[in-house]
Design a protein around this nucleic acid. Sequence first.
DNA 1: ACAATTATTTCAATAATAGAAATATCGTTG
DNA 2: CAACGATATTTCTATTATTGAAATAATTGT
Lengths: 245, 245
Amino acid sequence: MSQSVQRAFEIIRKIADHQGEHTLSDLSRILQMNKTTTFRYLDSLEKLDILERRRNTYFLGIGLFELGAKVDAKTSIVNSIHPILEDLCLRMNETVNLARLSGDQATYLDKVESTRGMQMKATVGDKLPLYCTGVGKAILSILPPEQSNQLVKNIELKAITSHTLTDRGALKQALDDIRNNGFSIDDEEYEFGLTCVAVPLRLEKYNFFGAISLSGQTVRFSEEDISRMVEALKTARQRILAVFE
Amino acid sequence: MSQSVQRAFEIIRKIADHQGEHTLSDLSRILQMNKTTTFRYLDSLEKLDILERRRNTYFLGIGLFELGAKVDAKTSIVNSIHPILEDLCLRMNETVNLARLSGDQATYLDKVESTRGMQMKATVGDKLPLYCTGVGKAILSILPPEQSNQLVKNIELKAITSHTLTDRGALKQALDDIRNNGFSIDDEEYEFGLTCVAVPLRLEKYNFFGAISLSGQTVRFSEEDISRMVEALKTARQRILAVFE
DNA sequence: ACAATTATTTCAATAATAGAAATATCGTTG
DNA sequence: CAACGATATTTCTATTATTGAAATAATTGT
């Protein structure tokens, strides 16, 4: 893998997570790159409009916005699906999320917020772990066995709440259940008080492995609520699949 | 400027404009890069989730979406401004656009479409020329003189319609008028039947040179319409500036 | 099954990159 | 406003990552 390209994106991604916080020297220190090297990358990226510098701290640049706006997964998939998600949100009045596999995590592609007060903090573009979120487990459940096993084997099962599955065997069992039931539940595994019900979504043509979910305060997720939600999610999925025939 | 970084983004940008159209060999030919070199860049970028390969043709990858979603100009500026633009659209029932300077062009950052049938085809993320669009000329009018002159001197003034200003002197005169009047008009200079009224928008803190505009069918842009629109645009700008105090 | 095209790997030559050190610039404080 | 400290930028050489020709493997179409 090209060292230069790798380093360039290492810098970009570091900046993405700490916009406006780091100077050249900081970045050089944090990334353990020579100061001159860091300088040259920052300089090049700035000239390409990929980064933007304000008072010697770095931000993501307009060029990334332009490119991001043209990502197929966004333009075709998100745009087509959005109205269906809005409708789902309206029906259930819980926050609706769309996520897809990205490396060994899930990326939030779209979100329609309910009118309720409590909201999850994740925003579009954020990444979330696969093993302790509704969408994540739903995605794991539909991946080709080889890939799924590979991920399950390598993911670090860190306990985020006391409900988080930290045992690989338990996770595998959970994935089997999801395959049988057709939906996954995150029962306060990622955040206390937050429950999430998800169904997997696969778009063959787009090499898309994702999921749609409804999430909200645990108190509103009784057995019956959940089965209503699962039905609604499955209906929404049918409508989505119809769009991509 | 780092050759590798430059080449990597050259490839990315080419793919952005022709997603799914080109294979490795094509790109190597088009960009006049050695096949092996092209291969290595594509390979690295794919591994970094910046590009995605489907049946040996390349698409922008989910990694770019993630980064694009985090661009400050989008998250802070666009998100804060959007409701004001929606309100403006509602009042005037013409399509509202937000654009900013990006290199020697203007990038559409946001758009709220009117309920009317005829719509411009440009979408968020697209770039438009500075010399023959409402937002473009508005932006040129508020840039530091040096930068503005530099751009005016170097831009190729290609006639897109018969109304397009192709004379550098005429463009300079137009920019002076805009500075005096505080608004710019694109009178079918970019597309027949399309008129656009814009006011410049400057956000000091963000190093932001942009403009907001109302655009629609020329028949609806009488003298009085235009002055009503300019007033509405100026009011909207005031509200925007208030957000960023 | 064969040809033709395309993708991928190998490997030596080289040019682009890395990094040390020097210099310039900026910001702060006495 | 001078002098310091920190940071950014430039210069320069050694070296290493990159390049690209050529060989090989994999696809694709006929």
